[in-house]
């Protein structure tokens, strides 16, 4: 057993969200509901073209109680902050609880890739990680969500029938299995409940 004391300034829990087509709308609806007291960091991969994304962080920041920013390389993860993967870079979590960017080849035809973020976050946060898959038209995220589950984390998938694009949630359900399958409007309340229970 480790006798090191936990460092309270470092987050012990985190939420990772992956989405693609239809994701801007879904993401802003979900994030807007999270209150300023929500202290878990939220790491997001959304597939978008270059120019739209830098505007997205700003637009979301405007609409949300939590601060939203594009992730910088090697920045420490601050509790209660939403980080978006920059366009054309993978986003990973380092075991020192810093964010890392990478230009490695696309995974599941995507960079940033949901799989890459989920797998690396699962490895660091293990049972204290919540993985969320929202609307999208491809299969990126399916393997990542399975990794979250395998490390003991909690998995949430948007009900495919309620998603603007059902491909991504369906693929995630097929490989990973989900602890919760919910319409979009019920996902943020669940996150808040899980947060309150800790």
């Amino acid at each position: 057993m480790s006798n090191r004391r936990p460092d309270l300034s470092q987050p012990r829990h985190a939420v990772v969200i992956g989405t693609s087509a239809g994701g801007v709308e879904a993401l802003s609806r979900l994030l807007a509901v999270l209150p300023a007291s929500f202290s878990w960091p939220v790491l997001v991969v959304i597939h978008l073209d270059k120019n739209r994304q830098s505007q997205l962080a700003r637009a979301l920041n405007h609409r949300c109680s939590l601060p939203v920013k594009e992730a910088d390389n090697m920045e420490p993860i601050i509790p209660g902050t939403v980080y978006l993967a920059p366009p054309n870079y993978h986003l990973l979590v380092d075991d020192t609880l810093h964010l890392a960017l990478a230009v490695d080849d696309p995974v599941s035809f995507s960079r940033p890739s949901v799989d890459v973020l989920f797998e690396s976050a699962a490895d660091v946060f293990r049972e204290n990680l919540i993985g969320v898959i929202l609307t999208g038209a491809n299969a990126d995220g399916a393997r990542g969500l399975a990794a979250v589950k395998a490390m003991g984390g909690t998995t949430i998938v948007q009900t495919p029938a309620t998603a603007s694009f059902r491909g991504m949630p369906e693929a995630a359900l097929a490989t990973g299995g989900a602890d919760h399958v919910l319409p979009l409007a019920e996902i943020a309340p669940l996150l808040i409940r899980l947060h309150g229970a800790e």
Binding site: L92, A100, A102
Partner: peptide, 9 residues
């Protein structure tokens, strides 16, 4: 080197 990237590779 970034440990996350090394581990992934």
């Amino acid at each position: 080197y970034s440990r996350a990237a090394i581990q992934r590779r």
